[in-house]
C-alpha cells in the first residue's frame, strides 16, 4: 500500500508515516488533477444558488433596488429605520431651516455637530420653558420619530411663514421644532 517494504530493524512508525504521506500526496494529486473542473462547477453552482435565493430576500435587504427620489432626505427616510430614527429630525429640519438657527433649552438631546452637518443650522442654547402645548394649535400628524436616550419619541416640524429662527419645544409626548414666526421663543429676544 505504501509502496515500500518494511525493512528489518526499522521502526513501525516510519512506514506508517510514509503510508500517510503517500495517501496524502495521492489525495493532493487527485485534487490537483480535478481542481479546474471542481472550481468551475462550484463557482457556477454557487452563482446560480445565490441568484435564485436573492429573489426571496425581502426588498429592504436586497443589494440594490430603485426608489423614487435622489436627495439625502429621501435616502435617510427610505429603508433603514435606524438611519431615519437617528438622523431624520435633522434632515427634516434642514429642509425648512437651512442656514438658520435652532434655539434649544439647556441639556437638549440635539447634537450641534450633526445639526450643522446635516441640517445646515447653528444650534444656540437659551434658558426658556420648553413646553409648547398651550402655544401651538392643530399641527397634524407627527413628522417622524427620533431616538432620544434609547426611546423613540415623535417629533413635529411645525409649518409656518419663512424665518431664520426655530426653537425646540416639548410637545405632546415628543418634540416640536417651532418657527419663531408661528410662536416666538418663550422669554427670548425674537
Amino acid at each position: 500500500m505504501c509502496g515500500r517494504p518494511i525493512s528489518r530493524g526499522t521502526s513501525v512508525l516510519v512506514p506508517m508515516k510514509t503510508a500517510f504521506q503517500d495517501s496524502r500526496s495521492a489525495v493532493i494529486t487527485w485534487l490537483r488533477r480535478r481542481f479546474v473542473p471542481i472550481a468551475v462547477i462550484v463557482l457556477v453552482a454557487g452563482a446560480f444558488a445565490n441568484l435564485a435565493t436573492t429573489l426571496f430576500v425581502p426588498v429592504g435587504a436586497r443589494p440594490a433596488w430603485k426608489h423614487g427620489g435622489g436627495d439625502l432626505g429621501f435616502l435617510v427616510h427610505r429603508d433603514d429605520s435606524s438611519t431615519e430614527d437617528q438622523y431624520g429630525f435633522y434632515v427634516d429640519l434642514g429642509a425648512v431651516a437651512r442656514d438658520g438657527t435652532l434655539v434649544v433649552p439647556p441639556g437638549s438631546w440635539v447634537d450641534p455637530h450633526t445639526a450643522r452637518g446635516l441640517a445646515g443650522v447653528a444650534v444656540e442654547t437659551r434658558d426658556y420653558p420648553p413646553a409648547a402645548d398651550a402655544l401651538l394649535g392643530p399641527v397634524g400628524e407627527r413628522t417622524g420619530r427620533v431616538l432620544v436616550a434609547g426611546l423613540l419619541v415623535p417629533y413635529w416640524i411645525v409649518p409656518g411663514p419663512p424665518t431664520d429662527v426655530f426653537w425646540l419645544a416639548s410637545f405632546r409626548d415628543g418634540f416640536a421644532a417651532v418657527p419663531s414666526s408661528v410662536a416666538p421663543v418663550p422669554g427670548g429676544d425674537d
Binding site: A64, K66, D79, D80, S82, T83, Q86, Y87
Partner: peptide, 15 residues
C-alpha cells in the same frame, strides 16, 4: 436610478 444605500455609518462619513 437611485440605487444608493445608506446607514448611520454612511451619515457619519457625510458629516
Amino acid at each position: 436610478q437611485h440605487l444608493t444605500r445608506l446607514t448611520p455609518d454612511s451619515i457619519r462619513y457625510l458629516l
